[in-house]
């Protein structure tokens, strides 16, 4: 393989991975930034998305239906969880959230096992993206190009949502001063419910999109939650742009690190995290240092 096609292939590999990492990290960072909640169940929502996406795609015969239904249902469950449980805990300290969301991972994980069983399930790549393109004679799956594209679209979408819509404005305002927003007559609880639902929905979106690469399996959640935390820590807790930057960085470090130093494949991501924490303890774009 020549250098140029090699570099191109690896960069596109990294971008497609970055998209998946971004979906995972951005929801977690939004939830933390606005609600000050460390959502330990984030990986489980990612897994839930994959399983619901699998079933929806199977019933309707369309991957795209799964891509819409998975995040919607997972988001609704997340919102209901916020309304039913988390809301009662806002006056407690942070450890209460950690315990409750950790409990949710166990309950949801068990429910998924009861509904879908223990075997890994295959979600097929959608027909239109099942082919390959040739980059200087090297085959590259179009689905990975689609992933990278989806990452860009969702990132721009979230950015525009936060900047231009009324709900986006309320979300930003709530993150800065929830009491003031409340005093101005806005139902802050509703904003929190919305952001928790959206965050979980984004994780589920990542889960559905990742399923054709890794299959929907019970091991997804544990893997995902660690990646999500790493992204949030590198990017800076609560920073939207930070999570985007961190996802791209981590993906490039993983893809190239694995190639040149395969023995350090697992460590690459953590070494990057250590480096960032040493230089900028609050994360790349984090507010507090």
């Amino acid at each position: 393989m020549d250098l140029l096609p090699f570099l191109l292939t690896q960069c596109l590999n990294a971008l497609s991975q970055a998209a998946l990492l971004f979906f995972l990290g951005v929801g977690l960072t939004l939830i933390f930034g606005i609600m000050r909640i460390v959502n330990f169940a984030h990986g489980t929502f990612y897994m839930l998305g994959a399983f619901i996406g699998y079933s929806s795609a199977r019933v309707t015969g369309s991957f795209w239906a799964g891509l819409v239904i998975g995040p919607l249902i997972a988001g609704a469950i997340g919102a209901a969880f916020e309304m039913g449980l988390l809301r009662r805990l806002y006056r407690r300290d942070a450890s209460a959230f950690l315990m409750v969301t950790f409990g949710l991972t166990l309950v949801l994980g068990e429910i998924i096992r009861l509904i879908w069983g223990v075997d890994a399930l295959q979600l097929e790549v959608p027909e239109v993206f099942s082919g390959i393109v040739f980059l200087f004679d090297e085959p590259f799956p179009t689905y990975r190009l689609f992933l990278a594209g989806a990452g860009v679209v969702v990132a721009v979408g979230i950015w525009q949502f936060l900047e231009r819509t009324r709900l986006g404005l309320l979300i930003r305002a709530t993150s800065q001063n929830a009491e003031m927003v409340h005093a101005l007559g806005v139902d802050v609880n509703l904003v929190r419910t919305a952001i928790f639902g959206i965050g979980c929905g984004l994780a589920a979106l990542g889960g559905v999109l990742a399923a054709p690469l890794v299959t929907a399996s019970l091991g997804m959640a544990g893997n995902a939650i660690i990646d999500a935390f790493v992204i949030v820590i590198i990017g800076g807790m609560g920073s939207f742009l930070g999570s985007l930057l961190a996802a791209v960085l981590v993906a490039f470090v993983q893809v190239f690190g694995t190639y040149y130093f395969p023995d350090f494949a697992l460590a690459a991501m953590y070494m990057l995290m250590l480096l960032v924490l040493v230089i900028r303890p609050g994360g790349l774009l984090g507010k507090e240092a």
């Binding site: 690896q10 395969p262 023995d263």
Partner: peptide, 17 residues
């Protein structure tokens, strides 16, 4: 050798190729 829990095998596929 890939670490247990590897999700993205693209680089390993490149190496095999």
């Amino acid at each position: 050798f890939s670490p247990t829990g590897t999700k993205d095998f693209s680089t390993y596929i490149t190496k095999i190729r």
